[in-house]
Write a protein that binds this DNA or RNA. Structure first.
Length: 429
RNA sequence: GCGGGUAUAGCUCAGUAGGUUAGAGCGCCAGAUUGUGGCUCUGGAGGCCGUCGGUUCGAGACCGACUACCCGCCCCA
């Protein structure tokens, strides 16, 4: 039979409580911190990503789903791509809709997004070709590091609210983009003498992206790697001061972090502050949960006015996988209906529909089957649904204008009128 | 793009040195009280053993190819 495309998957109803929870807590975090939602198209002109994310990045040059749109008789179609990330699109929208206009100096625009992204990579644990990201961007004329600390403070609350502990916040400064070229030169010079002592991967990285040498997991390369100059030592004075203030703002908030002077992010547009939050459970080798940083100048890169920006994104798939097992269990159980109606006989069946409607109008989550079945079977179904109550309706109850309400956890059962049932069920909701 | 692993019931997996009718647990169905679930017991249904080819008297087991999925590398959320 026809199955899902490699690297894509169905997210089934049984997992939806977890996805909804992550989304709900994220939206609450954004609400509290003054972010508004934006939805940008899934397809954009290829050029947006080529220029915004960077032509040379792996994301753009080997992982993008790019196609030529159907043209017309007189002209060729243009190159379009499925978005591999959302920051470039949000900045594009910020410019296109003139969101910076009419604002006082320093006034910020705070936007967040939730949606699918696409990268044509080899799927593995915690990595998909269609994956979902939640992210946010703070844009404007200000690059005050307090903005960065506040965003991380929000993420800190978010993770705690989801009961995701045991995470590590890594911070670094990659300096001004123009300084990075100088640093890269310095790094390559430092590596060169040891080239034949490094592993094959590192020799390859030396040619393609020397910064990645720091990520090498090969033991034998470590002694050499620790001697190499790090980017944090090569940044300009203003960036250094910025980074110091950033750390002070984190300290002031009591947020623990580790400075990783070797951490670099994969996208070209980052400048100064870069950070990531690593998780530890259930992610295989994909431990990065959240990644973000500052991207002053991205606007100019895609043809807009000067602006400063700071943002992050996290993988929803990974975040869901990182929910603690007991929390996940709790969320799934909480998804059960309030009440399951069991009816016996045609008269009761018709009453059951009326009662279901009344209960639903009262805001109660009600489940009932349309076909009558043996009571034993119906009760078993009620039990399996996870419902807190079974409402039993037979000829006797109909005659009395009442129903049996059975608490499925305790086994207690009472003959009650509808108003009493509503009161009892909503009391524990 | 490269490397490793797996493919047997709806699900998770066992299947010994190739040998008759392919197993378990869970789930499902039916029963053990007539209008009461969970727990227990009894019985039952359900499988071209991923596909194609090869070795053999004989293949779920061995070999090859293909496909799919999983994991890792690169890189990243």
């Amino acid at each position: 039979m026809i199955q899902t495309v490699r690297g894509t998957r169905d997210i089934l109803p049984e997992d939806m409580p977890l996805w909804h929870r992550v989304e709900e807590v994220a939206r609450e975090a954004f609400r509290r911190y003054g972010f508004q939602e934006i939805r940008t198209p899934i397809i954009e002109k290829t050029e947006l990503f080529a220029r915004g994310v960077g032509e040379a990045t792996d994301i753009v040059h080997k992982e993008m789903y790019t196609f030529i749109d159907r043209g017309r008789e007189d002209r060729e179609g243009e190159s379009l791509s499925l978005r591999p990330e959302n920051t470039a699109s949000v900045v594009r929208a910020y410019i296109q809709h003139n969101m910076f206009g009419g604002k006082s100096d320093g006034e910020l625009t705070r936007l967040y997004y939730i949606g699918p992204m696409f990268r044509r990579e080899r799927p593995q644990a915690g990595r998909y070709r269609q994956f979902y990201q939640i992210g946010a961007e703070v844009m404007g004329t200000s690059d005050d590091p307090v903005i960065e600390a506040e965003v991380i403070e929000m993420l800190d609350w978010f993770l705690k609210e989801l009961k995701i502990t045991n995470t590590t916040l890594l911070v670094n400064s990659v300096g001004e983009p123009r300084m990075r070229a100088m640093y890269l030169e310095k790094l390559r010079e430092a590596i060169k003498p040891y080239l034949d002592k490094l592993c094959a991967d590192c020799r390859y990285r030396f040619e393609t992206n020397a910064l990645r040498v720091f990520d090498c997991k090969n033991e034998s390369c470590q002694p050499i790697i620790v001697t190499l100059p790090v980017i944090l030592d090569s940044i300009d004075e203003a960036s250094r001061e910025h980074f110091e203030q950033f750390k002070a703002h984190l300290d002031a908030r009591g947020i623990a972090y580790t400075v990783n002077p070797r951490m670099v992010r994969g996208l070209d547009y980052y400048s100064r502050t870069a950070f990531e939050i690593d998780g530890h459970d259930g992610l295989g080798a994909q431990k990065t949960l959240v990644g973000g940083g500052r991207y002053d100048g991205l606007s100019e890169t895609i043809g807009g006015p000067p602006m400063k920006g700071f943002g992050f994104a996290f993988g929803l798939d990974r975040m869901v996988m990182s929910l603690p097992a007991d929390e996940a269990k709790r969320l799934r159980e909480a998804d059960a209906p309030d009440l399951f109606i069991v009816f016996l006989g045609d008269v009761a069946r018709n009453h059951a529909f009326k009662i279901a409607r009344e209960l639903r109008l009262a805001g109660i989550e009600v489940l009932l089957e349309f076909e009558e079945r043996r009571m034993k079977k119906a009760m078993a179904q009620a039990d399996k649904s996870g419902a807190r109550y079974a409402l039993i309706l037979g000829e006797d109850e109909v005659a009395q204008g009442k129903c049996q309400l059975k608490n499925l956890a305790t086994g207690e059962q009472y003959l009650l009128a509808l108003t009493e049932i509503i009161a009892m069920v909503t009391k524990h909701a």
